[in-house]
């Protein structure tokens, strides 16, 4: 029997319970509410029960209070976990980060960044890009410079840069080093201003494009324009494309495809195949 100690514990416990309820009302989303409520209530009710046990002294009341205390202490975190899991698996998002350094930036966009950078989603991202990318089927024989002039227009539309800037960059890149890796495969690529964008244009040239004297008739050209922060993704794309053109019979299928639709299908199915085999960059 120790009355003051018991009463102090009970007071602390009640204060914690009240704080927990304030947390449930005031916090911005389910996860913060859960963390405020569960922690505070576990402590609060535990303190009330301990206080009651101390206040009442040895006897059936104290025994039951201690039993109840152990039970609350064990079960409350578990049920909070179950609720948080249910909320998470049904797609309820975190509202916002309240830390000063992150104010004003949605945590969702950060999470998106994280998943975008992760290996797993990059695999799907390339296929996603191929599904939407521009595929050109060029019948005439031309030089790489005139091809760049043509290609710069669609890229400039989606990137919001003037077309001549992109054409100039592509030409400059080409002068620095020929981007034709094989007699029938070229990957001109440039780095553009900005953040988080990546463009891919696939070109099938029936009569070939002149890149250099060594590669006068390049038939498959993949033009990439990405921002600096997408460098990693660019390298992976490059590896995947290089792996793709190495597969046997790719260029036969590439030149036999009837139209843009078939070319796209071919690209997607070849990339999926590489992915399944788990070789190469992707």
């Amino acid at each position: 029997m120790n009355e003051p100690a018991g009463l102090i514990l009970i007071t602390v416990g009640i204060a914690y319970d009240l704080l927990a309820c304030l947390g449930v009302v005031r916090m911005p989303d389910i996860y913060t509410r859960l963390q405020a409520a569960t922690k505070a209530v576990t402590v609060g009710t535990t303190f009330i029960l301990a206080g009651a046990a101390i206040y009442a002294g040895p006897g059936p009341l104290a025994a039951k209070a201690l039993l109840c205390l152990a039970f609350v202490l064990l079960t409350n975190p578990a049920s909070a976990h179950v609720i948080a899991r249910a909320a998470h698996s049904s797609g309820i998002r975190v509202e916002r980060v309240t830390a000063d350094g992150l104010l004003g930036r949605e945590i969702e966009s950060e999470l998106w960044d994280v998943t975008r950078r992760s290996d797993l989603s990059e695999k799907d991202r390339l296929i996603h890009i191929i599904e939407r990318c521009l595929i050109m089927d060029i019948k005439e024989h031309m030089t790489s410079e005139s091809l760049f002039e043509i290609i710069s227009h669609p890229i400039s539309r989606s990137e919001g840069l003037p077309a001549w800037v992109i054409a100039d960059k592509l030409k400059k890149r080409e002068r620095e080093a020929v981007t034709a890796l094989k007699p029938d495969f070229a990957i001109p690529h440039i780095i553009i201003e900005g953040q988080g964008s990546f463009e891919l244009v696939s070109v099938r040239a029936r009569r070939g494009i002149w890149f250099s004297d060594k590669c006068p008739r390049v038939t498959s050209i993949f033009v990439m324009a990405g921002t600096q922060d997408e460098w990693h993704f660019y390298l992976r794309t490059l590896a995947a494309l290089a792996q793709m053109v190495r597969t046997e019979g790719f260029f036969d299928k590439w030149s036999e495809a009837r139209d843009e639709k078939e070319l796209r299908k071919l690209l997607i199915s070849e990339l999926r195949k590489i992915r399944k085999e788990g070789k190469g960059g992707l």
Partner: peptide
């Protein structure tokens, strides 16, 4: 959302445990 409500109801349950404890030390009945 439904989990918000579930949390609140769970908290009410746990607070009622404290409520009963207070009543029990007040009346002295276990």
């Amino acid at each position: 959302t439904a989990p918000d409500r579930t949390v609140a109801i769970e908290i009410i349950g746990i607070i009622l445990v404290g409520f009963c404890t207070l009543l029990s030390i007040h009346t002295g009945e276990d």
